[in-house]
Amino acid sequence: MSLGFSFRYVTDTRLENGKDNLDQYKVLILPRSCAVSDDLAKKINDFVRNGGTVIADIRAGIMDEHLNLRQPGAFDQAAGIRRKEVLPAVHQTLNPSLNASKQHFESGIEPAGGKAFRKTEQGIPAMIVNHYGKGMFVTLNFPFNELPAMATMPKELRRLLLDAFSKVPARTVFTTGDTGAPCYDLRRGEWKNGDMLILGVKSKPGEKKQLHAVLPAPMHVFSIDGEKSCGKVSSFDFQITPPKPEFFVLTAKPLPEITVNVPGTVERGSTLTVTYTVKGMKGERPLRLSYERDGKPLDLYTVREVSANDTVQQAHFRVALNEIPGKYTVTARDVYTGKTTVFPITIH
């Protein structure tokens, strides 16, 4: 996630029974996958052979689903590795000169067709990369949870990991606004909402920071938190204040306007009915409706957050029998674009 990619979690059961198909993915990450069935191992090896990328950590596939030790391991050929024997893990560091945290390395592993990168002080390979068929198998010779942060990771390993994700479609890249350096201490998520992409960004605890986002292509950008349009841009700047996340809407086309209809007059003791729709809208649009007098909502119950789509929907406000006759308004605000429309009404 710190590389700027979203992910989907799949289970071995769903892959084995066909509910998930590896053909729809570009990169498969295998954390702590020591025990793998023969059927699943074949599917993963075929995935690599047909052009996919696998990134696995220490001792992937060395046992079957019944915890029987394999020799060789299920992925050894695809990974381009060979094990002399399964030995206890060795606790060493990737950056001894920096007094960095240590990792647990499998000492009995060596390249067998794959290429080793970044060895420990005892010569144990930290990463082995092998091109297998049309794809690539990357072995991290230590647990994923011990992977150094991107900012402190050795440059060689960082470059190799970024290369491993090269087949993934282009994504938004974040840099710090003051230095322009890549920002790796972010967590991000993406959700499809019809034709819209919702992008959420959250920073690790710390000071607020100014960020610069570079899009893979020019898009219409809307700040959900700021309730405003940033226009059609290739990049945009924003400030993030931990732990509060920031959310944006990205679209290839301009968003169609929300159509709101409000009656001009309403009788006391009746119901004020507001209709709203977005013609041609694929997805849901948040709309804030407020029944007001003198520019202020009457109470908490006269403000509604509703979801607009391409069907005609209604929001109802009860007009009290003892309501003061006179001029009132209904304010409709598009939360994505920030466009606000005020409709005058008269209470009789």
Rank of each mutant, 00 (worst) to 15 (best):
303 V>T: 10
84 K>S: 15
304 R>P: 02
155 K>C: 00
125 P>A: 07
159 R>Q: 03
340 T>L: 13
328 Y>Q: 03
81 I>W: 06
10 V>N: 05
340 T>H: 03
175 T>Y: 13
36 V>E: 05
252 A>I: 03
240 I>A: 02
22 L>W: 05
180 G>P: 14
264 G>I: 07
227 E>V: 00
158 R>I: 03
41 A>R: 08
284 E>G: 09
12 D>I: 00
347 I>A: 09
138 V>I: 15
231 G>I: 10
20 D>M: 03
304 R>S: 12
212 H>D: 09
248 F>L: 00
286 P>Y: 06
329 T>Y: 04
223 S>D: 13
248 F>E: 00
314 Q>V: 00
4 G>E: 05
122 Q>D: 09
105 F>K: 11
194 G>E: 02
236 F>P: 04
98 L>F: 13
205 P>E: 09
243 P>I: 06
15 L>C: 05
42 K>R: 14
151 A>T: 07
176 T>C: 15
15 L>K: 01
170 A>I: 04
64 D>S: 08
27 V>E: 01
310 D>Q: 09
317 F>A: 07
61 G>D: 05
196 M>G: 08
101 S>K: 14
131 H>R: 14
82 R>K: 15
11 T>P: 00
233 V>G: 09
61 G>L: 08
301 Y>T: 07
290 S>W: 05
150 M>G: 11
74 A>N: 06
121 E>A: 06
72 P>N: 06
14 R>S: 14
311 T>F: 02
183 C>V: 09
53 T>L: 07
147 L>E: 01
11 T>L: 00
337 T>E: 05
92 Q>T: 08
279 K>E: 14
51 G>C: 11
316 H>V: 01
307 S>F: 03
288 R>I: 10
97 S>P: 04
87 L>S: 13
302 T>N: 04
191 W>Q: 14
234 S>E: 12
129 V>S: 06
185 D>W: 06
162 L>W: 04
282 K>Y: 08
286 P>M: 10
84 K>R: 14
77 Q>W: 01
331 T>H: 02
85 E>P: 03
201 V>F: 02
39 D>E: 15
108 G>R: 06
233 V>Q: 12
331 T>S: 14
